[in-house]
Design a protein around this nucleic acid. Structure first.
Length: 572
DNA sequence: CTTCCCAGCGCG
DNA sequence: AAAGCGCGCTGGGAAG
């Protein structure tokens, strides 16, 4: 059952659709629901397990969650439209071509075609008080119905320009489902929040920085280090937070650095370097995750960041507010389970290299990937047992390293694994030549930038040199895109499978945990102690399911390492 | 005064 | 030990 939910002047409009996006013949008339009635109506309809179709999950779902309504599945027209408009699998369809034309004409697409920046978060409670999110032309029930029908039509023809390919269609359909599930999970995780103990955070800050200072003041430890630096560098007014100021002071003392980055500073043995590095470390903690951050972002024991699904071209999520995807190790001790609960922290081990093995179908590397430690397996096969070397070489292949040790190891890696290396090399050549590349499930890289297109017109030798640099830069991007994007495909499926299993457990009346955090290849479940074993199994089963959804039954393992802890800093 | 960009560093 | 990919956030500092 498919239910389209759209904004309406009097609240919301609902219409039942068929799978291809036509009005359901037995019940074709839309129904208008007043805002205050919407949660109850939606809750009632949910019993029929519909797929909710809406312009953006962010428009509707947060407010429904606040009203206590959780839903099973949805179809996010904006996120799916963005994928379909750019995917190579649908590039030959009218849908993608219309989107392309809109881009060229520089018009605002309907409803989005993935070209809009992410929307600002809706006002608290605004949905049910005001006439609805985005009551705008182009987002009427009829416009959204037509959009859904157009997307389904494009999906039906997924394949190549010559032939519709059931495998590609299935993968793309899976991606759309996983992306939409991701949008729901993002809203649910924001609603739930990460369990965060303010007093533990404050204790960490006090240990590192000293007591909380007055606003605008440096904490005691930073103040002391500043005084020491001023003395050692004979610069009484030095502001160590100013790179320019700092650079001048270093030069006056014969420390000839070109930047003030940590690694360059470490080259020098001047006595001021050690306190300077200490200062930088602590200043970062104070500025990024200090008392101001705690005041701003943690309320009632929960950190509730906004996740931006589709915020990264590769399919990874981004986040907005609070730096949710950059929680530093220093303060992870503040992430702490509630009494009677545990945190289950699981991450996919060496995900990107394993994804490369599967993409390239490199049988030799697959042998190495049967090891729990893929790098050790590779080291044994081609690097004389030197794990560090194997790791640097493989990551270098995925990122496109050209210089340094990583670059030097590439020939050796290519000899041992011609298929795997050949796969990323091909992606790099495609990117250099201005072609797009595509993840396993069908998310394609953006077309070449204007800069790249401009550079193709180069005439002089100097221009040609710059054009080559631009092409190589795009090559590194597309080389990485196929791996990072397919890893994001896998992670999206993992997350969606896990959510489904956790919901099933709860529906069966079992104790179960809640997803509270997701970070590229890592999930955190906040879980009653008596449900830990079942949740761990769900996490592991979901990882296997994700692998098979992407690649079928292939002899490559995607192991997850799982830690059951009270506190995030004990998770590894 | 506000707005924008950069350097630097946190995460994967 | 950094570099090769992808992000967000901060303070400083320049531009408007």
């Amino acid at each position: 059952m498919y239910l389209l939910l759209a904004a309406h002047a009097d609240g919301a409009a609902l219409q039942q659709l068929t799978a291809d996006g036509s009005p359901e013949p037995s019940n074709p008339e839309p129904r208008v629901v007043r805002p205050e009635d919407l949660p109850g109506v939606v809750r009632g309809l949910e019993e029929r397990h519909p797929r909710w179709i809406w312009h953006r999950t962010q428009d509707w779902y947060p407010a429904l969650l606040r009203a206590g309504v959780e839903l099973e599945r949805c179809y996010d027209l904006t996120l799916c439209g963005s994928i379909l408009a750019h995917s190579e699998f649908t590039a030959h369809t009218g849908y993608a071509q219309a989107a392309e034309k809109l881009t060229q004409d520089d018009e605002l697409p309907l409803p989005s075609r993935g070209l809009q920046p992410p929307p600002p978060p809706p006002e608290q409670g605004a949905l049910f008080d005001a006439p609805a999110p985005g009551h705008r032309p182009g987002q009427s029930l009829e416009a959204l119905r037509a959009e859904y029908a157009a997307q389904q039509e494009a999906l039906r023809h997924a394949g190549t320009a010559i032939v519709t390919d059931a495998g590609r269609r299935q993968r793309l359909q899976l991606l759309l489902a996983a992306e939409s599930a991701g949008a729901m999970i993002a809203a649910e995780m924001q609603h739930t929040g990460v369990p965060w103990r303010e007093e533990l955070h404050e204790q960490i800050l006090a240990d590192y920085l000293g007591p909380r200072p007055a606003p605008g003041q440096r904490p005691a430890k930073l103040e002391a280090l500043t005084a020491e630096l001023r003395r050692l560098l004979q610069s009484p007014a030095l502001n160590p937070d100013s790179p320019q100021d700092l650079m001048r002071a270093l030069h006056r003392n014969g420390i000839e650095v070109k930047t003030t980055r940590q690694w360059e500073l470490k080259e020098s043995s001047h006595p001021a370097i050690e306190p300077l590095l200490a200062y930088k470390k602590l200043a970062r903690l104070h500025a990024a995750n200090g008392w101001a951050w705690l005041d701003m972002w943690v309320k009632d024991g929960r950190f509730q960041p906004e996740y931006v699904v589709g915020g990264v071209v590769s399919g990874r999520w981004a986040s907005r507010g609070g730096g949710a995807l950059q929680i530093p190790r220093q303060i992870r001790g503040a992430v702490h389970a509630d009494p009677g609960y545990k945190l289950i922290v699981a991450d996919a081990s060496q995900l990107e290299p394993r994804v490369l093995v599967a993409l390239a179908q490199d049988a030799k590397m697959a042998e190495a990937a049967r090891d729990k430690d893929l790098y050790a397996g590779i080291a044994a096969q081609g690097f004389g047992g030197d794990r560090a070397k194997a790791k640097v070489a493989l990551l270098g292949a995925i990122y496109g390293a050209t210089t340094g040790e990583s670059g030097r190891l590439m020939p050796q890696l290519a000899r041992t694994y011609p298929r795997a290396v050949g796969f990323v090399e091909q992606a790099a050549r495609d990117g250099e030549a201005g072609r797009t590349v595509t993840s396993r499930l069908g998310r394609s890289s953006p077309p070449p930038s204007d800069r790249w297109l401009q550079s193709q017109q180069s005439t002089t030798a100097e221009e040609q040199r710059r054009a080559d640099a631009i092409a190589r830069s795009r090559g590194r991007f597309t080389r990485n895109f196929v791996v990072q994007g397919s890893a994001a495909d896998w992670a999206a499926c993992w997350l969606a499978e896990l959510r489904r299993r956790l919901r099933t457990m709860r529906a069966q009346g079992a104790a179960t945990g809640e997803l509270v955090f997701f970070l590229h290849d890592e999930v955190m479940v906040h879980c009653p102690e008596n449900a830990v074993a079942d949740c761990m199994k769900a996490i592991e089963d979901s990882a296997t399911a994700a692998k098979e959804l992407l690649f079928g039954r292939i002899p490559v393992e995607f192991p997850v390492s799982v830690a059951v802890v009270d506190s995030y800093d004990n998770a590894k």
